[in-house]
Simulated assay, not measured.
Amino acid sequence: MCNIVSKFFNQVMKRLLTVVCLLVGLAALAEVPGSEKQILVDLYESTNGKHWVRKWNLKEPVDTWYGVTVRDNRVVGIELFHNNLMGPLPESLGQLQQLETLNVAFNNLTGQLPATIFKLRKLRVLKLEMNRLKGELPETVGNLTELRELSVFNNFLSGRIPNGIGSLKRLEVLNLSSNQFFGRIPESIGELNNLRALGLFENQLYGDIPESMGNLAQLKELVLSNNRLGGAIPESFGRLASLEVLQLQNNEFNSYRNLANMQTDKLLVFDYDEEESEIDFKNFDFSRTRMADTKFEDDVDK
């Protein structure tokens, strides 16, 4: 009886082992869809992949390619920071519907900003800074409702900052600095309740700062210098209790009076056109502040 049970047990274990091996083999053979692989090849060819610092071996599986993250056989991340990409981004990028991270910062990308990028509704991080991209930031940027970080500083982007930016409720970092954006800062920017860093410096923005900016209770860094912003500093700035960095210099403000309502005990950086101010900040310890050119940028030594 024992022999019969033993043989039966051995047969069951052998079959189970066979099934496990088959499943492992199938998993090993699994790869991203051919269409997604082709989109990555488009990116490689469009941005002169043969001259990248870290190149891809297109004959190897996609999940071995530098900077590509694959999960459940779908491409969810592309991180090619400082990798000598040259040329335009392909329109086909917008077909990577599971993409969560696109970081191609600090490269030599040129051409128009592909409108298809703003169809990537699962995108959480979009970093395009330090390139030579042109075009406008479209209203469809508001489709990226999962976005936590949007950084495009130091490009040649132009046009107005779209009202759709206010739809990005989860956004924590927004840096549009050192571009050619013009016009007024949209009121909708005050709807970004989770925003911690906002950089708009070195553009062609004009008009009053919207009062709604005072709603950004989580904001720690606000850099608006080197524009043509005017009028008075909003009274609502007194509600920016978390602020640590505030840079306002080189604008056309006619009154700084409302800065006196701010809590200055947390400020580490405070730059404004002092000679134009009618306020004497007697309670502010300037000795512990520092001048800063804040770009919220990646560490280029990574």
Rank of each mutant, 00 (worst) to 15 (best):
P90G: 09
E91W: 02
E91D: 14
S92H: 06
S92Q: 09
L93D: 06
G94N: 11
Q97E: 12
Q98I: 00
E100A: 08
E100P: 01
E100N: 07
E100M: 11
T101M: 09
L102D: 03
N103H: 08
N103C: 05
V104I: 14
A105I: 02
A105Q: 08
F106W: 14
F106Q: 10
F106V: 09
N107P: 06
N108Q: 14
L109R: 10
T110A: 02
T110G: 01
T110M: 03
L113W: 04
L113I: 05
T116A: 05
T116D: 06
T116M: 01
I117R: 00
F118A: 03
K119M: 03
L120H: 08
L120P: 15
R124W: 01
R124D: 02
V125D: 00
L126F: 03
K127W: 04
L128D: 06
L133T: 02
G135A: 07
G135W: 11
G135Q: 08
E136G: 05
L137Y: 07
L137G: 09
E139D: 15
E139S: 11
T140L: 05
G142D: 05
N143W: 13
L144P: 11
L144G: 05
L144F: 05
L144N: 09
T145N: 07
R148L: 06
E149I: 13
E149S: 15
F153K: 12
F153P: 15
F153H: 15
N155C: 02
S158E: 15
S158R: 12
G159M: 11
G159E: 13
R160A: 15
I161L: 12
I161R: 12
I161D: 12
P162V: 04
I165T: 04
I165W: 01
I165R: 00
G166V: 09
S167N: 15
S167K: 15
S167G: 10
L168C: 08
L168D: 11
L171P: 10
E172T: 11
V173K: 02
L174A: 14
L174Q: 14
L174Y: 12
L176W: 10
S177I: 13
S177D: 10
S177P: 07
S178K: 15
S178P: 00
N179T: 14
